[in-house]
Simulated assay, not measured.
Amino acid sequence: MPQDPIHDLQGMPQLLEIMRRLRDPQNGCPWDIEQTFATIAPYTIEEAYEVRDAIEREAWDELKSELGDLLFQSVFHAQMAQDAGMFDFQDIVGAISEKMINRHPHVFGDESRDKSAAQQTLDWEKVKAAERAAKKQTGVLDDVAIALPALQRAVKLQNRAARVGFDWPATEMVLDKLQEEARELVEARDKLTEDEVRDEMGDILFVVANLARHLGVDPEEALRGTNAKFTRRFRSIEAALAAKGKHPKDSTLEEMDALWDAAKAAEKAD
């Protein structure tokens, strides 16, 4: 039996042909054929998080595979777009190449490279603003992606508003607002509907994101670190209880709290 010619290809041509074949209406994979942009989008997001996970764990051998998975997501979307007569992979490459060239005139143009990172960030924002204007996105908050993680999107919205002066001038004012919102929710929680409680809780989280921004802290990174810390210390509780032949559900809050304090003290000692 002759070898499939797919093996004669390499690099991007091979990957693009693999995707084309997977989506072929006659001979492709039934699962791949029935997918849409909406059904694939969650996988795209998941793959991006898996790339980040590999980086945070410094799992460099895994990173190559995870980056490949993320690249495949772009190829998948490109093939679906091509099937619909919208655009193809080369259009995507052309668009991002043009964008990067336009946004780096100090590298690909005649502007001076003698700028600080902060100045380059300001220049980048000016170029992006011009791009939004060309798209007739004239609102300050236009093009802040809706699908971003909520805390990350909150910070981006607040940064945009702050550029036009809509911001608390002092961190203390943000902290006062946070305390006010939290106090109001606690005092009124028994009188509010479930939707109202959710709305008030959202207000508190939005102010928390603003406080983090004023303190120069990325709230996503901060919460990710705390999640890791909680996981690490709770596993210490489980290990300590297992050494006694016990399980957390067989323990008391007081016992687990003491073990938590011990794990915390041990971390600080290290």
Rank of each mutant, 00 (worst) to 15 (best):
K115N: 09
Q14M: 13
Q152R: 11
D123E: 12
D32M: 13
A84L: 10
P30E: 02
T252S: 13
V207P: 01
F76A: 11
E50L: 01
S74D: 00
E221I: 05
A265S: 10
A188P: 02
V107I: 14
R213F: 15
E17D: 15
I40H: 11
P219T: 06
P248D: 01
A78P: 01
E172T: 10
W31P: 01
G94L: 01
A182I: 11
R183N: 12
V164D: 03
Q119P: 01
A134M: 15
Q137I: 12
L16H: 00
A130F: 14
F108G: 04
A170Q: 09
G109S: 05
S116K: 10
T231G: 10
K246L: 10
M19P: 00
I18Q: 06
D167I: 12
G225Y: 12
L63W: 06
I18L: 06
H214S: 06
A239K: 07
R132L: 15
A133H: 04
T44E: 07
T226P: 00
A154D: 12
I237A: 03
I101S: 00
W31M: 04
K64C: 05
A228G: 11
G202H: 07
A222W: 07
I18H: 02
E267Q: 07
E187L: 15
V93C: 05
L157E: 14
M100T: 05
E254K: 14
A262M: 09
E187P: 05
F87H: 05
D24Q: 04
M100P: 02
Q137T: 05
V75H: 07
I6C: 08
A81V: 05
E238F: 14
A243T: 03
E181N: 08
E187D: 14
S65F: 15
R20V: 09
A263I: 06
H77S: 08
A266W: 04
A38M: 08
A84N: 09
A130T: 11
V140D: 07
A145E: 15
G94F: 04
K135Y: 06
G202D: 12
T44F: 14
D250C: 09
D261R: 10
G94H: 03
A263H: 06
V93L: 15
G94R: 02
I18A: 06
F108Q: 08
T44R: 03
R153Y: 03
A81N: 04
L178K: 00
L71V: 09
D123N: 06
V107R: 02
Q120G: 15
E255Q: 14
A154Y: 12
E98G: 03
R224L: 11
A134V: 08
R113M: 13
R20K: 13
Y43I: 09
A269D: 12
G216S: 10
A38W: 11
A129C: 03
M256P: 07
E62Y: 04
P42M: 08
A242H: 01
A145D: 15
P30N: 05
L67G: 03
S236I: 02
F87D: 01
E184R: 07
M201K: 00
P105R: 02
V186Y: 10
A258P: 03
E184M: 09
E196A: 15
R23S: 04
T39D: 07
I96E: 00
A242I: 04
K135S: 13
L67V: 10
D203K: 10
D114L: 09
P25E: 01
M86S: 08
P2H: 06
Y49I: 10
G109C: 04
K128S: 07
D4K: 06
G245R: 06
M80K: 08
V208I: 14
